[in-house]
Design a protein around this nucleic acid. Structure first.
Lengths: 194, 194, 194, 194
DNA sequence: TATGAATGAGCATTCATTCAT
DNA sequence: AATGAATGAATGCTCATTCAT
């Protein structure tokens, strides 16, 4: 259980470094040094640094979706599932060394030709967006169009909350996002006044 | 009118490159080559690459605030001023080569010790936030507390809209943000239905 | 016999340059150019310029001690061994391109934070000092205290002789040092008159 | 009395820096910054960095000789004057920030073509040597030849004592040098046993 | 499958000096 | 007499990648 394979060790080390130091701040040398792997061995498993990043993003995506759906699964009402997404964010943001959204971080300052990474970021963001819309469609009172529209709005709230938390090093943005989310998720007027 | 001073040329070139290619993707060599300046001349005007970035952010901040307040000045009602912030974003996002928020982009993958840049990003974000709150406080029906709360919420919407636009290379996030903004800015129930 | 390994070639080239032109006068670029090695190859074998200098000093120390003890081994009497140290110096000083003591030279104008080099210089100087004292302790007529005192005095003579030779580009300082050494090494008065 | 001329300010600043940081460790920029002088003004007063160093060495030489002869002037016996040279060294060495002999330090790691500095170092060393010999010639019991020989020997002791003090960061080398000096300066046998 | 050795291009920064004003 | 602006060359060092074994 202890001794991971070479590829796993590289990916695990790189994932930690890419997220906590940043993609540009992490060199191949640091990865192989901390993973305890020879350089050429690394290039046997991954064709390039970009490919490691792609693997990192894929794994992170799986983990993220799993943890999120896990976290919200305690709620029965789909509306509450969506609202509790913000509580999930709070859990993430209050972790030590929180460094924002791994996908936002990697795409904002990336060599122009790293298409695979750009693609991976889009995949993640669209999966989250799709999951939110699908969840909203479980709400009877919403039409499909209403669910789609509302889904996009909630995506914006989540994105804004997370990046602003990172910049401000504070959780007020999550609370603000959650507050707006609660307002817009209910057609019912009484819920509107927060 | 053509021949700028050396410092201006450096800053102008660096600003373009920092925004359109990213801070890490832009080397000092490219800056001086495109600005047509000797390396040591550059270092006479700026102590470090970080200092150039700070100057870029300061200038961009001034421009951004000026253009924003200019843009919204056609509106009289403070609520409309805030809503038209999203129209300002649309104008920005639809520019060719739109690359998202210069401040978000530079801070998400930055060497740990670049404090001056981090500080500049915070200054910008807080100035925008303060401007929004101040504008909302002109609305009679809001108490100070309501204006502050609402201001934070709108900040989240703007941030989310802009980064999601960048990732999606689309303007639907701005429209979604604006839509939410219109909902929450009015206490009046009738405005709720979009 | 001709084709040395890369590391050996770097060290050999750097040693020559550090000694004959000085540490500050020798740049990494010159070392790799003359060694015929790529820059990154060099940094694979040595973490820094300082580390190359340390390797150079370690190797030079081994050589110096080996040659010295070899040179004086023709003498049986420990006193004569010590005196012939000055003859060893003469051999060194009369070599073409003599540039003084490698350890003195490197430490006198050194960036403040080069601790490893400073440490290496101290190691060398103290090894020489210890060797001299140990040799003197073989002399029956000396008490341990006398040997220690005399050892320190001879160290001073050697140091003074070598640096003054370097400055004057002459060997009279070695002869003067040797002359004093002969005077003080004998308790016997008759030897006092040179 | 406070406001020095530009040239004096440059020389004073450079002298401090050359001695306490080293010649190679001190750049023109630091000199002009700390002297509060424009770069071109500096080059108006001194043709090159080397020329500043020459001026520094000349001034230091004058100061050194003045202070030394002052220090030893309390002694009447020329032998005692010579011996008290070592006490003068002790005074120097125990000063805070003692960094060894300014002339030794500058010559050991110097660009090959800095002839003026090399020359200045020789001038200083030979002046000291001449002064010692002249003082010894006042001793009646010495022949001219004996004074010359002894003078060279004492030069070696002083040089060795000072550089070893610098390396060891200790004053035992001065005491050792002084001890030898006392032994060799007296023909009288009784003084020989320390 | 695994690896240590090697690489060329690039990094940000500093150097002593000169020039136009 | 004094200066701010400008420079080319060099500094030590790191990058992601490839190759020979």
């Amino acid at each position: 259980m202890k001794k991971l394979g070479v590829k796993e060790r590289i990916l695990q080390t790189a994932s930690k470094l890419f997220y906590f130091q940043g993609f540009n701040q992490t060199g191949i040398n640091q990865i192989i040094a901390e993973a305890g792997v020879a350089k050429a061995s690394m290039y046997q498993h991954f064709r390039s640094k970009e490919d490691i990043a792609v693997a990192y993003l894929i794994e992170r995506h799986a983990m993220w979706m799993r943890q999120l759906s896990n976290f919200v699964s305690v709620e029965k009402d789909p509306k509450d599932k969506i609202i509790s997404c913000f509580d999930y964010l709070i859990e993430r943001v209050t972790e030590v060394n929180f460094r924002g959204c791994g996908w936002q971080n990697i795409i904002t300052d990336l060599p122009e030709d790293h298409y695979k990474i750009r693609n991976q970021v889009l995949l993640h963001k669209n999966d989250v967006r799709a999951w939110i819309k699908a969840t909203l469609k479980e709400v009877k009172e919403y039409s499909n169009e209403e669910a789609d529209t509302l889904g996009d709005e909630i995506v914006i709230l989540l994105e804004g909350a997370i990046i602003q938390s990172q910049i401000q090093k504070d959780i007020w943005p999550i609370h603000s996002g959650k507050s707006v989310c609660k307002k817009i998720i209910n057609k019912n007027i009484d819920n509107y006044i927060v």
